[in-house]
């Protein structure tokens, strides 16, 4: 067969994608598309052309054991059983810079409880949720605020690692410091224990180009476009995935 004829190649690609090229002819064409870029291109064009026909088919939810089998066959089960001492080894590549910073500062030893929720999540889901995490330190480098928000969520959760002094009537304002441009306000945080606030958009939208977070003391919650007072806390903001 003369495969150099574009019309013939296109017709074969059409019947291949449509499904009516069968048996030996189908196998030969599969070999041809691997060897010949023009055949591969013709196949891609037909796949794109006929895709709207597939879109008319109503979706059917697979049973849960389909994913279980896929997960097992792609090595996913191993991560789920890691725990205790093994957890640290497994977490290290995922946490990357975040853990580098934390380990250097000894915060894991000083504040073990800060990691309990993460540990639980790992135990339950077999994976850390994709999140943005910030560790803010004071001017002496003492870790003071741990902030985290899931990648596609709008809630920022903060844990105050040591109480922050703030005069009555003032607020602690958290800022995002983008790679380029002016700092913008994210929300206000408490001076002790834990807290959370809702951001104006998802973390992914707001923080994907934000390498650092900071906290300042303000008279009230800062509006967008305002200039922050001097920062009392700053730290890296990293992607946890």
């Amino acid at each position: 067969m003369n495969y150099d004829r574009p019309d013939l190649l296109d017709r074969l690609a059409a019947e291949y994608v449509f499904g009516t090229l069968t048996g030996g002819a189908r196998r030969r064409f599969e070999r041809l598309r691997r060897a010949m870029p023009a055949a591969e291109e013709a196949v891609r064009a037909w796949e794109a052309r006929l895709m709207p026909l597939a879109e008319a088919v109503p979706p059917v939810a697979p049973q849960a054991d389909v994913w279980t089998a896929i997960d097992r066959r792609t090595g996913g089960g191993r991560a789920a059983v890691a725990s205790g001492g093994g957890l640290w080894t497994w977490l290290r590549p995922a946490l990357g810079l975040a853990f580098g910073v934390l380990a250097t500062l000894g915060v894991v030893r000083l504040y073990p409880t800060a990691f309990v929720p993460v540990d639980q999540i790992v135990q339950e889901r077999g994976a850390l949720p994709a999140s943005y995490v910030g560790l803010l330190t004071d001017k002496d480098g003492v870790p003071t605020v741990l902030a985290s928000s899931t990648r596609h969520g709008t809630r920022m959760t903060v844990k105050i690692l040591r109480p922050i002094e703030v005069s009555p009537g003032k607020v602690l304002q958290m800022w995002a410091l983008p790679r380029e441009g002016a700092p913008f306000p994210l929300g206000t945080i408490p001076s002790r224990d834990k807290g959370e606030f809702t951001m104006s958009d998802t973390s992914e939208k707001l923080l994907s180009n934000v390498p650092r977070l900071a906290v300042s003391i303000e008279d009230g919650p800062a509006a967008a476009g305002t200039t922050p007072s001097p920062f009392i806390l700053t730290g890296h903001c990293v992607k946890l995935w």
Partner: peptide, 20 residues
């Protein structure tokens, strides 16, 4: 090798693909 992304890809596309 991001398993979370793989799972999300599955959740987002598996029903349509199973229908086909």
């Amino acid at each position: 090798g991001d398993r979370t992304a793989f799972r999300r890809l599955y959740d987002a596309t598996a029903p349509s693909l199973l229908g086909v």
